[in-house]
């Protein structure tokens, strides 16, 4: 099958993280990966994003073809409990990130120039932002969103090595959310 332009979106995923390394404000571009799949699901009732346009999935597939141990994804990880549980956890963390952004915007807390990996480990990231370039809340969202994107990609890479290349897709919060939307939208004809 001949390659299409969207078969190269794995390059975009890598560029995204490189851009965020040098200037954290590029993290906002990650919103594309949040809004486009939801748009496909809500307006089109499909998962075209997961199926063709997900750069992260493509990257995991490519790296996994070399690095994955190719073991079966554990049953618990494939269960609805885990998938929806992880979705709830992820959305809670996203909500918390929005709240932290609000606190900075309201002047209740000060901007910390760092990212947080796995929602636990603070990593200084000050070189990627010059204070005062934009409003503090815009910068805060950038650091928070980049943390979320990097953390989820790292989780994807870990399960890629341990199990199958695209094990992440099984419990990817966006994938879970869009499939649920599709099931609701198409419940009469599937």
């Amino acid at each position: 099958m001949s390659k299409k332009w969207y078969d190269y979106l794995w390059i975009w995923t890598m560029i995204y993280f490189v851009l965020g390394f040098f200037n954290i404000l590029f993290a906002w571009l990650g919103m594309i990966d949040f809004l486009v799949p939801l748009g496909f699901a809500i307006f089109g009732g499909n998962k075209y994003f997961c199926n063709s346009y997900c750069g992260r999935g493509q990257l995991l597939g490519k790296l996994g073809s070399k690095l994955s141990l190719n073991r079966a994804t554990p049953k618990w990880m494939r269960s609805k409990w885990f998938r929806y549980g992880f979705l709830c956890f992820f959305l809670s963390m996203f909500g918390n990130m929005i709240f932290q952004t609000y606190l900075v915007g309201a002047g209740a807390t000060t901007l910390q120039e760092g990212i947080k990996l796995f929602w636990t480990f603070n990593i200084p990231w000050g070189w990627a932002y010059s204070a005062g370039t934009v409003s503090d809340w815009i910068a805060k969202f950038s650091f928070g969103f980049y943390s979320l994107m990097l953390t989820s990609t790292l989780i994807g890479l870990i399960v890629m090595i341990l199990f199958k290349p695209r094990t992440w897709c099984v419990f990817c919060p966006m994938g879970c959310m869009t499939q649920t939307i599709c099931k609701i939208k198409n419940k009469d004809d599937t």
């Binding site: 998962k47 997961c50 199926n51 063709s52 999935g57 597939g61 494939r78 998938r83 695209r166 897709c169 099984v170 990817c172 994938g175 879970c176 499939q179 599709c182």
Partner: peptide, 11 residues
């Protein structure tokens, strides 16, 4: 009932 519609199989 357990398919996540990721599309890996189609590729």
């Amino acid at each position: 009932t357990i398919c996540v519609a990721c599309g890996v199989c189609t590729k």
